[in-house]
């Protein structure tokens, strides 16, 4: 069953990646990156257990925190970003 979960997560990663490539709006990309980060955490937990990676839980926990900070930084950036730098 763990193998099935890993395969499902790999397909999920691929689909999320396609959404990050397609856009179309910038918010879709932010959503895709955040979603990719969450899936990475899950992948670390499931794959780490199946393949016996060393101290994988620490890394998964760290990734969950880093993903949160990164997405918040992006949102904060857009809040204060002025439209003057846009392409006319």
């Amino acid at each position: 069953m763990i193998a099935a979960a890993i395969v499902a997560l790999l397909i999920t990663l691929a689909l999320t990646l396609i959404r990050a490539f397609m856009g179309p709006s910038i918010y879709d990309r932010i959503l895709a990156v955040n979603s990719f980060g969450t899936k990475t955490v899950l992948f670390i937990v499931v794959g780490g257990h199946a393949l016996g990676w060393f101290s994988y839980v620490d890394i998964a926990l760290m990734y969950a925190l880093v993903n949160f900070i990164g997405t918040l930084a992006v949102m904060r950036f857009f809040e204060q970003y002025s439209p003057h730098g846009e392409r006319s």
């Binding site: 990646l17 895709a32 990719f36 780490g48 994988y56 990734y63």
Partner: peptide
Amino acid sequence: MLFGIFSFVSALLFLDLDAVDVAFTEA
């Protein structure tokens, strides 16, 4: 944004190669 994803994927790769400390730093 894509570079963020790149970093996630490369850290996963490091983990799969059993380089845990490198993956930690990359993360």
